[in-house]
Design a protein around this nucleic acid. Structure first.
Lengths: 153, 153
DNA sequence: TATATTAATAAGAATCATTACTATTCGTGA
DNA sequence: TCACGAATAGTAATGATTCTTATTAATATA
């Protein structure tokens, strides 16, 4: 029931050509591994982990290494070809603050700042989500550059 | 500039008493380690990791082990005394979908579902954030129970 | 088309965050 | 004060990710 539609089988080949062009533009060599990883990720609708992708791809490329999957995903992400699903970072962070609040993360220094946002807390979630299930919690993560990291005027 | 105010030094002791009561209510023994970990986290305003807390606490409790910090934080979280800063999970997840969208996570099965939310994308962020810096990206994470995990009626 | 250049890969070791194991210590109720 | 079980320290183990290095392969060019 995802609101974001998936490519039709027919659209996939043109997506792959587009991908190859993106690679060339970015000076990335078009390798089997990269094609397979990108294709697998495009066809997957379950936000797979590197490990999950690896297990799926190895059936077609038996010699591919897990490291290649990790490295390739990082490369794709750097070039804006794919997205890493929003996580603050691998290390878990904690807080004793129990008042409902949200987080602004500075992409330069990584500092996480709390802020409250009543409008968001009260906003109605999209109707389409009613089919999905019952929403209990909501959390907003903003990303940007904090004042102390901004180039001084 | 955080919008969520911190406890005044004066309020801290009552906070600690409150904490001890919470522990007793939850059948958690009130140990030095737990008190120190909770106090350190209450005084910290930087969303520390377990490792960071450990390094701070070891100066006062030289024999505390890192494992205790991890275990205690998990215990506190389970009893709702602290919060783990929103991350989907420790394993990074990826997606090729480049259309702007958000995520609904089912807390039972863990499945991540994409959805679009134009109202949120267009909503004005709180004025107070202007002081913080420039916001480039925003992302909403909803948590709930998806239909297939809901008890059948 | 063959070749040189250089990026990309495979394999496995290393690292980092986190969790598990086990003997010992300590908080708490009787 | 004592006995009990929960909590802890110390260390080993695990899981995810990254690094190292020798090898392979994509691409530009002759």
């Amino acid at each position: 029931m995802s609101q974001v539609k998936q490519p039709t089988p027919h659209a996939l080949s043109s997506l792959m050509t587009e991908f190859e062009n993106s690679c060339r533009r970015a000076d990335l060599k078009v390798t089997h591994q990269r094609l397979e990883i990108y294709r697998e990720l495009t066809e997957a609708h379950d936000h797979p982990s590197a490990e999950m992708l690896y297990r799926r791809i190895i059936t077609r490329l038996p010699t591919i290494s897990l490291d290649t999957v990790y490295r390739t995903l990082a490369t794709f992400e750097k070039h804006g070809l794919i997205t890493r699903v929003q996580t603050v970072e691998s290390q878990a962070r904690f807080e004793a603050e129990m008042v409902k609040h949200h987080h602004a993360v500075c992409s330069k220094c990584g500092v996480i700042t709390d802020f409250t946002w009543e409008t968001f807390d009260a906003a109605q979630v999209p109707d389409t989500l009613a089919v999905w299930g019952k929403v209990f919690k909501r959390h907003a993560v903003l990303e940007g550059i904090c004042t102390s990291c901004s180039p001084k005027v």
